[in-house]
Computed example of a mutant assay.
Amino acid sequence: MIAVQSAVQVPDPLSVPSNAPEHCPGTESELAGKADACAGCANQEICMSNEPKGPDPALPLIRERMSTVKRKILVLSGKGGVGKSTFTAQLGWAFAADEQLITGIMDVDICGPSIPTILGIASEQVHSSSSGWSPVYAQDNFAVMSVGFMLSSSKDAIMWRGPKKNGLISQFLKDVDWGDLDYLIIDTPPGTSDEHLSVVQYLKESGIDGAVLITTPQEVALQDVRREIDFCNKVGIRVLGLVENMSGFVCPNCKTESQIFSPSTGGAKKLAEDMGVELLGAVPLDPRIGMSADCGVSFLDRYPDSPASTAYLDIIDKIKQILGDE
């Protein structure tokens, strides 16, 4: 007996809101706001009012602005507190250490913009010019954009729903005068929500070179990384590799290493093997990393002899090799 399977239209994951019901048809579907699954959904009226649905007018502007950016790298984590923004900052500092390279960081962790503080430029503000918003420069070849520069106080809470977040991300991509960049590193919030979907949607035509996933050794963090890898596979983002942060503790005095977060299920190494992704490296926990972030200085420059600095630089070399830049 031959089973006959009816054709079912599977919605593009990029068109499904993060708070959508289980059988959401997607915002681009003709059934958006009309399907049985839409009943009671908070987005129902918005989806119904979006007709007719056409291409986003921001996409050509983003494509033009991003045409001068050579590499675009996402830094992702499934869980907060694993050191994603700190790693992003060190990656930016390391690229910018080469005076021949021009590097940028775009901070789309809109509700928790920590990049300005980590880079020591939290007191700076964004200025407008005839060519768009001017990013803040941590140094001559290191441009940064974050909502943190737009707040009247560092204590201000950002209470935005998805559409306003998406609008700001669009502006960061199309209205910021990034100029000619060798690397644009995009720091994202934890998870796989509005901000991630927006970045992928807006850069769909411009292209994303890949994602670096950050985790810690505990299984509770690794579980979320598995979901992050699944997200990348579903939306077509290349996973450049996995970084295990806080992988042991290095004493600044005696340089001995101790396990603080025990890898009970094999840590990032076992996860990389199971999921078929590259393990870029493991960064030991050095308390001076947090101190450098609080002070807004480059850990790599301040403590070049730390085992953590060696690990960072090895990881960055691997990323360049994978991208074909070395």
Rank of each mutant, 00 (worst) to 15 (best):
P11E: 07
P13R: 00
L14C: 04
L14E: 03
S15L: 06
S15Q: 10
P17M: 00
P25F: 01
A32G: 08
G33C: 10
K34D: 09
C41H: 03
C41K: 02
C47P: 05
E51R: 14
K53C: 00
P55T: 12
A58I: 15
A58L: 12
V69R: 09
G80Y: 03
V82K: 02
Q90V: 00
A96V: 04
I105W: 04
V108D: 04
I115W: 03
I118S: 05
I121D: 10
E124D: 14
S129E: 14
N141W: 05
F149G: 04
L151R: 04
L151P: 00
S152H: 13
S153E: 15
S154K: 15
D156Q: 15
N166S: 15
K174D: 07
D175C: 03
D177T: 05
G179F: 02
G179N: 10
G179I: 01
D180Q: 14
L181S: 10
L181W: 06
D182P: 08
L184K: 09
L184C: 06
I186A: 01
P190S: 01
P190K: 00
S193V: 11
L197K: 15
V199Q: 07
V199D: 08
S206F: 11
I214Y: 11
T215Y: 05
P217V: 08
E219A: 13
A221E: 02
Q223P: 00
R226A: 12
R226C: 07
I229S: 06
N233Q: 13
I237F: 00
N245T: 04
S247H: 05
G248N: 05
C251W: 07
P252D: 08
S258F: 12
T265L: 04
G266P: 11
G267Y: 11
G267T: 09
A268F: 11
K269M: 13
A272Q: 06
D274N: 13
M275L: 14
M275A: 15
V277I: 15
L280M: 06
G281K: 09
G281A: 06
D286G: 11
I289C: 09
G290D: 03
A293T: 14
C295K: 15
V297P: 06
S298H: 07
L300I: 15
D301H: 11
Y303C: 07
D305Q: 14
P307C: 05
S309E: 03
T310Y: 12
I315P: 04
I316W: 11
D317Q: 15
K320W: 02
G324P: 06
